[in-house]
Design a protein around this nucleic acid. Structure first.
Lengths: 216, 216
DNA sequence: CAGCGAACGAGACGAGGCGTCTCGCCGGCC
DNA sequence: GGCCGGCGAGACGCCTCGTCTCGTTCGCTG
């Protein structure tokens, strides 16, 4: 077994055309924003990008995988310019601020998440990718690892800092604490049960922090 | 405007064939469990059920809608027999027991939810429906209303009872309290971030209840 | 009990996307 | 400068979609 994946003769990545890759990303993002994910087809992306279908099938297993990579590429590029315009000097993942006021810090970033999930420009594509990931474990893992986990890990670091300061009980698993905050938010977003508001984000932080407070 | 939905000439439901309806449900459930949701087609369901395609298109707008109704029909039938075998005398929605020990009651039912979401027989179809609902608001609303809300409402009633007894702070919105419990569980299920275990369910109950406890 | 009409089973139909394939062509390494 | 593999282009067979037409069946209504 010479390869980890002997299924298909692997293409030679070093000969890959960067020009085509970018054109495919641009076409995919344009089509999804214009006509929606469901009506976007691989044939359509190829035509719009001026690319052979085989070039897409050679490098991606599914339409969702193409869009995920396009999404990540877009995020990486905009993140790059944003990082240049700030003068932060590239931090890897955006970090949750630590002003010392844990509740305020969490509310700030949870409200930002609410705004993002509410923004129609992000809501559509993100829903499409999330839905595809629910059903396709392979893609779901990539979606989670690339988009969700970095965010969760930054929460975990902030919680650990609070634990070190004594604001959160040392016996609490930081990961569970983070899910206590983020889980309900995602629940409302995914199932559209009730409106996603800043007030809801604040209420979650207050309730969760009471549960996470150090035991007397 | 004689009808609420003037779009299509509405078929006459009183003449509908019950025999076909049941055959379609059986075929849909069988095909999904045999070959998976993605490979199940409306053509396939019609053929398997011994039914014309038009009979499906006449009554359902999409493959997902068919499966949702089939799922609900199945749940209603098994729920019916279960209710007969117990001798409870039909309660509408299954109620969360109230033994007086709130934490124990919640852990019991949350563990049951974990078992359900972990059971491969339920996981597959439920994922497919949930994913479709994420992207299709119409279907998502039906999915939520028929499968999710009844469960959430029973949680809400249990929380309200606890509030009346003074086990939960009266200032807490019961709905938010419920989402604090259920949200993180669904989050792990949907995104497969970490394993869904009884221990996790217990940890959630303990943390959440500390947050919900009456203020001193 | 008769007969009207709508839902029914069956399947033909055009449209269109899928995933594979086969062309030359092109462009980067040896 | 020649080789080799990715490239654009698009033909191909297959499948499914959603619509449509048959003739049949079955339930309501007169």
């Amino acid at each position: 077994m010479p390869e980890t994946r002997p299924a298909k003769a692997a293409p030679d990545a070093s000969r890959r055309s960067e020009r085509s890759r970018r054109a495919i990303f641009d076409a995919a993002l344009a089509l999804v924003s214009e006509t929606g994910y469901a009506k976007t087809t691989i044939e359509g992306i190829a035509a719009r990008a001026g690319v052979g279908k085989q070039t897409i099938y050679r490098w991606w297993p599914s339409k969702a995988a193409v869009l995920l990579d396009a999404f990540l590429d877009l995020a990486a590029r905009t993140g790059e310019t944003a990082r240049r315009n700030d003068a932060h000097g590239g931090e890897g993942d955006s970090e949750i601020p630590d002003t010392g006021d844990l509740a305020a810090d969490l509310k700030r970033v949870l409200r930002a998440t609410v705004d993002e999930l509410t923004d129609p420009a992000f809501d559509g594509p993100t829903r499409a990718l999330a839905a595809e990931g629910v059903v396709d474990p392979e893609l779901g893992a990539r979606f989670t690892e690339a988009l969700l986990e970095p965010q969760l890990r930054s929460y975990v670091r902030r919680v650990e800092a609070a634990q070190a300061k004594g604001d959160i009980d040392p016996g609490v698993d930081p990961r569970v604490a983070v899910e206590l905050l983020v889980g309900p938010l995602h629940h409302r977003w995914i199932h559209r049960t009730l409106p996603l508001t800043h007030a809801y984000a604040d209420a979650l932080v207050d309730l969760a922090l009471r549960g996470l407070a150090p035991r007397p």
